[in-house]
């Protein structure tokens, strides 16, 4: 179990775009991942309000989702997004950190299903949510 977490953590931290957006792990394990990202004026999407672009929130949710797949007990060796549907509920409050909580809630032999929610510092009112399907590559020779 520790191996899986270690591998997934290293995998995520080796991602240039996750590093570029300043993403940090909050927790990871058992098909669940929590990753957060600081507010940064470079990621503003609406100059009139200073609100972060939805695309940056998508990138955070996609990364958390991939991490959730990687730390699923099925022990995948790699994953890629097949599809992601993002619903935007409200503008994230400028200046606040954004946190994505992803859960890989079902896996088949080759597909993983994930749901993820993004919140700012007001955790009671989500900023966005997404559901996605991811590829699941199991180690060769793994029991099927």
């Amino acid at each position: 179990m520790t191996d899986i977490i270690q591998i997934a953590r290293q995998f995520i931290e080796a991602i240039p775009h996750a590093r570029a957006l300043g993403m940090e792990f909050e927790s990871l394990g058992d098909g669940k991942a929590v990753i957060s990202m600081p507010y940064d004026t470079r990621f503003i999407g609406d100059p009139a309000t200073g609100v972060i672009h939805g695309g940056a929130v998508s990138a955070l949710m996609d990364t958390a989702s991939g991490a959730a797949v990687m730390c699923h007990p099925a022990g995948p060796i790699s994953t890629a997004t097949l599809d992601l549907r993002i619903d935007y509920f409200r503008a994230a409050t400028p200046g606040q950190r954004i946190t994505a909580r992803a859960e890989c809630y079902h896996v088949t032999r080759s597909v993983a299903f994930v749901r993820v929610t993004a919140t700012d510092e007001d955790a009671a009112r989500p900023v966005a949510a997404a559901t996605g399907a991811f590829t699941l590559d199991r180690p060769s020779g793994a029991s099927r």
Partner: peptide, 8 residues
């Protein structure tokens, strides 16, 4: 990154 593609 899938998130970059989504943002693009």
């Amino acid at each position: 990154h899938g998130g970059v593609t989504a943002a693009f």
